[in-house]
Measured scan of single mutants.
Amino acid sequence: VTVHVNRYTYHFDNPEEAEKFAREMAKRLNMTVEIHGNTLKVE
């Protein structure tokens, strides 16, 4: 599972951890999480 935050890319083996990380980053940056299959984008 890949998480994109701005120009950074993070890889996770565990989808739940990836989503938790993405949501935490989105909250911190006041952004939203978009899910595209195995890719989560924080925008």
Rank of each mutant, 00 (worst) to 15 (best):
1 V>Q: 03
1 V>D: 01
2 T>C: 13
2 T>A: 06
2 T>W: 13
3 V>T: 01
3 V>W: 00
3 V>L: 02
4 H>E: 10
4 H>Y: 08
4 H>I: 15
4 H>V: 14
4 H>W: 07
5 V>F: 10
5 V>R: 02
6 N>M: 13
6 N>T: 07
7 R>W: 10
7 R>E: 12
7 R>D: 12
7 R>H: 13
7 R>L: 08
8 Y>V: 13
8 Y>P: 00
9 T>Y: 09
9 T>L: 11
10 Y>W: 10
10 Y>P: 00
10 Y>H: 03
11 H>N: 06
11 H>M: 08
12 F>D: 00
12 F>C: 05
12 F>T: 00
12 F>M: 01
13 D>T: 12
13 D>H: 07
13 D>L: 09
14 N>E: 06
14 N>G: 06
14 N>M: 06
14 N>P: 00
14 N>F: 07
15 P>D: 05
15 P>Q: 12
15 P>S: 11
15 P>A: 13
16 E>D: 11
16 E>N: 08
16 E>R: 10
17 E>M: 08
17 E>N: 06
17 E>S: 08
17 E>I: 08
18 A>N: 00
18 A>E: 00
19 E>V: 11
19 E>W: 15
20 K>E: 11
20 K>I: 12
20 K>L: 12
20 K>S: 11
21 F>R: 00
21 F>W: 07
22 A>I: 04
22 A>P: 00
22 A>N: 00
22 A>H: 01
23 R>I: 08
23 R>N: 09
24 E>Y: 14
24 E>V: 08
24 E>D: 10
24 E>N: 09
25 M>S: 03
25 M>T: 07
25 M>H: 03
25 M>I: 14
26 A>R: 04
26 A>H: 02
26 A>G: 04
26 A>C: 07
27 K>D: 10
27 K>C: 14
27 K>P: 01
27 K>N: 11
28 R>C: 14
28 R>A: 10
28 R>P: 01
29 L>C: 15
29 L>E: 04
29 L>M: 07
30 N>I: 02
30 N>K: 06
30 N>T: 04
31 M>G: 15
31 M>L: 12
31 M>W: 05
31 M>A: 14
31 M>I: 06
31 M>P: 01
32 T>L: 08
33 V>P: 02
33 V>W: 05
34 E>N: 14
34 E>P: 01
34 E>V: 15
35 I>G: 05
35 I>D: 03
35 I>M: 09
35 I>N: 05
35 I>L: 06
36 H>V: 12
36 H>K: 10
37 G>Y: 10
37 G>W: 04
37 G>N: 06
38 N>W: 03
38 N>Q: 06
39 T>V: 14
39 T>Y: 10
39 T>F: 09
39 T>S: 11
40 L>G: 04
40 L>V: 13
40 L>D: 04
40 L>Y: 10
41 K>N: 10
41 K>E: 06
42 V>D: 04
42 V>S: 04
43 E>Y: 15
43 E>M: 15
43 E>K: 14
43 E>F: 15
43 E>S: 14
